[in-house]
């Protein structure tokens, strides 16, 4: 094709991608850089600093290091990610995927049931769990544990972190199951056949064949679920708003509360920058692990 035509193509491609680039630059790249700048000022929504924010250097970051609430929020986020995404969703998702490998009549139904929680909007999920975990002897969970002779509990007050972990595991089993199913389906049936011939028991098959060959899928799952679990806001906010007394204040909720309830924009931004850096770090690992071919 002619050189003129090719030049026209090049310009057209630039023109077609431009609106997307502009939007991403305005609403993602610029705010990310702006957060770094704001974190170096004492900007706030109230008080004298609201009118003319001052450049305070790394003050917000030094404050961060000595702020017990920040460390508590970080710890809560860590346990939340560890127990809900890395352990709970993964174990139950992998178990479901393996148990559902065998075909039986109700398999599509079970599959749909396990995926349902993933499809529900966050607010509705929070509402349903508010009813599940309601205190008093009529709460659904209290009714269930009563069969085992357990006294009625105030679930969200007595075990707040455990409960949001239970809620988040519930929400994520389906996603883990889908990925594990696709990982499992790439393992050749012949390997299992051969292992069975050699008289391997199911546990050995799992340890020596399934697990090693699943490692790439597991690794990608861990990266993806870590960043997406750190980003969780609505599900927990709608259920507890970070309470009681900050016991479920995940890092995202902490940023929100610091910025819009305590009005400390500068300080909130410093927390945001920490989260941003960590997420981007995992994102880099992800890009490398995928070896994306573009």
């Amino acid at each position: 094709m002619s050189a003129k035509f090719e030049r026209a193509e090049i310009w057209r491609n630039r023109f077609l991608i431009l609106p997307s680039m502009l939007l991403l630059a305005t609403f993602v790249i610029y705010p990310a850089c702006f957060a770094v700048y704001t974190s170096l000022t004492n900007e706030s929504l109230t008080g004298p600093a609201a009118l003319n924010p001052r450049f305070v250097g790394l003050d917000n970051y030094t404050k961060l290091f000595t702020d017990g609430n920040f460390w508590r929020s970080l710890a809560i986020t860590f346990w939340f990610v560890l127990f809900s995404a890395i352990i709970g969703q993964l174990v139950l998702g992998l178990a479901s995927a393996m148990l559902l490998r065998r075909r039986f009549a109700l398999r599509p139904l079970v599959n749909a049931v396990i995926l349902m929680p993933n499809a529900v909007p966050e607010v509705v999920a929070a509402m349903m769990w508010a009813s599940m975990l309601a205190s008093g002897e009529y709460g659904t969970l209290n009714n269930i544990v009563a069969w085992f002779g357990v006294e009625p509990q105030r679930w969200l007050t007595s075990f707040p972190l455990t409960m949001i972990i239970v809620v988040n595991i519930w929400r994520g089993i389906g996603f883990a199951m889908i990925l594990m199913t696709s990982g499992l389906s790439s393992i050749s049936e012949e390997l299992y056949e051969a292992a069975r011939m050699d008289g391997a028991n199911p546990r050995q098959v799992f340890r020596r064949i399934t697990l090693p060959l699943l490692v790439p899928t597991l690794f990608l799952y861990l990266l993806v679920s870590t960043v997406s679990t750190i980003a969780i806001f609505g599900l927990v906010f709608a259920l507890t708003r970070g309470g009681p007394a900050g016991a479920t204040e995940l890092i995202g909720i902490y940023i929100y509360n610091q910025s819009f309830n305590a009005y400390q924009l500068g300080y909130g931004s410093a927390v945001a920058v920490v989260v941003l850096t960590f997420s981007l770090f995992i994102g880099m690992l992800y890009v490398r692990a995928l070896k994306v071919d573009v």
């Binding site: 991403l24 305005t26 609403f27 993602v28 790249i29 610029y30 705010p31 990310a32 702006f34 957060a35 704001t38 960043v227 750190i230 980003a231 806001f233 890092i251 995202g252 909720i253 940023i255 929100y256 910025s259 924009l265 909130g268 931004s269 945001a272 920058v273 989260v275 941003l276 997420s279 981007l280 995992i282 994102g283 880099m284 992800y286 890009v287 995928l290 994306v292």
Partner: peptide, 20 residues
């Protein structure tokens, strides 16, 4: 860049976004 953008938690952008 697109992949990296996907890992940014929206809560981390909320303050500057509000100002924009």
């Amino acid at each position: 860049g697109i992949i990296l953008i996907r890992v940014i938690p929206p809560t981390a952008l909320i303050v500057p976004l509000y100002k924009i």
